[in-house]
């Protein structure tokens, strides 16, 4: 999936997904996120903006989990921003919301 250029300050990386996070685009997003996170190691928080997502499948969830697992040892945090209630529900019953901050915001 193509994403708009991520925004990055010294402490926060924001990565905006333009649509669903699925098995068919998770690998490309993973590569881009890895590049961003490796480019400057001063970041403390990564924001995964999923407000445009209507559906996140298991491979997409695994991507989020990978980011969480990569961030944790360095004391970094992950914030997931969603607007779709179904996506919010999936994050809840897979208990990802216990490992990352999930923020519900209206769609842009």
């Amino acid at each position: 999936m193509n994403t708009p250029p991520p925004t990055q300050s010294s402490s926060v990386i924001t990565y905006v997904f333009r649509g669903d996070l699925l098995s068919t685009n998770a690998a490309a997003a993973q590569a881009e996120l890895s590049r961003l996170m490796g480019a400057d190691d001063r970041w403390k928080t990564i924001v995964l903006d999923l407000r445009a997502a209507r559906i996140v499948d298991s491979v997409g969830l695994n991507l989020i989990v990978s980011i969480i697992r990569g961030a944790r040892p360095a004391g970094r945090s992950v914030r997931v921003v969603v607007s779709n209630q179904n996506v919010r529900r999936v994050l809840a019953f897979t208990r990802i919301d216990q490992h990352a901050e999930v923020v519900v915001e209206e769609d842009r």
């Binding site: 499948d57 298991s58 695994n62 897979t94």
Partner: peptide
């Protein structure tokens, strides 16, 4: 609990 990646589809 342990953020295992396996079988997340089945959990869904």
């Amino acid at each position: 609990t342990s953020l295992l990646a396996e079988h997340r589809g089945l959990v869904l």
